[in-house]
Design a protein around this nucleic acid. Structure first.
Length: 132
DNA sequence: AATGTGACCCTCT
DNA sequence: GAGAGGGCCACAT
């Protein structure tokens, strides 16, 4: 696979347990603001999905609305939701993730304010992650 | 080399 | 406020 997908995996692996990230956010982190669509495409080639560290927790990647990819998941949206709930992610009555409280910052997991900055995306150091 | 596809997001009407 | 359309990315054929 290409390096792009590799970056996607690196970023997704960086998502801490109990947090979720949006496709668009991941896309911006890897340097593809309009390539969010390919994020899911890359995750489709996910080599090792799972909750354990070292794997690619694609279940922690959801829509910006907090909704998850319906129609395709490693067991259906229901299973994915259960996995997220098991990790401590909160859902609302509509079955969407509470992005205001569980959206990953992209850099640290302790920050409570998960407001996506309007400015430029932060520089992510995937080179170190990929072992460059 | 060109065309088609895809787990999306933003903007306009 | 809701719906429709466009766009750009990388990968596969």
């Amino acid at each position: 696979m290409g390096d792009f997908a590799n970056r996607v995996f690196a970023v997704v692996r960086r998502i801490p347990r109990g947090k979720v990230a949006t496709y668009g956010q991941v896309g911006r982190l890897i340097g593809a603001p309009r390539g969010a669509r390919y994020v899911g495409y890359a995750l489709h080639a996910n080599p090792e999905p799972g909750t354990e560290p070292g794997c690619v927790p694609c279940h922690r990647v959801v829509f910006k609305d907090g909704r998850m990819a319906t129609g395709f998941a490693f067991g259906g949206p229901d299973e994915q939701r259960k996995m997220l709930v098991a990790e401590g992610v909160g859902f609302d009555e509509e079955g969407r993730v509470l992005m205001d409280a569980f959206q990953w910052d992209g850099r640290s997991d302790g920050a409570g304010t998960e407001s996506e900055p309007s400015g430029p995306p932060p520089d992510f150091d995937w080179k170190a992650e990929l072992g460059e």
